[in-house]
Amino acid sequence: MSIEFKKIDYTYSVNTPFQFVALKQIDLNIEMNKVTAIIGATGSGKSTLVQHLNGLILPTSGQLIVNDFVINANVKVRNLKSLRKNVGLVFQFPEYQLFEESIIKDIAFGPKNFGVPEDEANKIAKASLKLVGLDESYLEKSPLDLSGGQKRRVAIAGILAMEPDVLVLDEPTAGLDPQGAKQMMELFKKLNTVHNKTVLLVTHDMEHVYNYCDNVVVMKKGEVFLNSSVNTFFENTTYLDELNILAPNIIRLKNMLKNHNIDVSGCDDIHSICDKIVKELK
């Protein structure tokens, strides 16, 4: 079980005036059963990268391995559907993909496409809806009558219902209120820890990266700038400065305390840091 990018290039609109190289020589290993954040400025190739994962975009050159599925550039790929069942991709603003007349039908749409019988699909749909934090009273409502945040949840439930091993999310919290965003991130973490899923998410929020992710992949101008664990990434301020990224609050606090000669190493949450400060000041 692995996800590997081997020397992958991708160019949009080849041989037109709009030709644009989005990915250059991507060599990347994604650790399974972890939460990996993909960060980078807009236009750095994050979305293009994640769309490779379930074969929506096929590489211009190079090789991609997802589990036992191998995609080679310029070779016709068979049975993309089985890849798509294994890798669930949630697009940016996924609420726009809702279309059925009731929520249960919309969530069951995915599994039914992959050949799950109707009553089984409905059962999964109910479970998925519960997983994203909406109760059963929503099942028969029209997805178009919901608020933005609720639509987002339903759309994500639609992907979860496919029961993929790998869950890929493109900016899943964009436009959500802080509370909603937090619940979403906790859900993804839970899917990883409890349900053992590999989660990849594109995000701009360093707090989310720090609090919920294990690894981080930094994209810069179509290339992989860095692939490391979250802790190593935030400890190394030269990276952050070079990428013009503001570290999460807690890291900044720790750095400030270090400058004031208060040793807080080993403290990872705000409470233990506070305790330490109180102890130091006594």
């Binding site: 929506l56 697009f91 496409n113």
Partner: peptide
Amino acid sequence: ERIMKAQASRGVD
């Protein structure tokens, strides 16, 4: 294209 991709991810072929 976007919606096509999104639905393709949900197994529409």
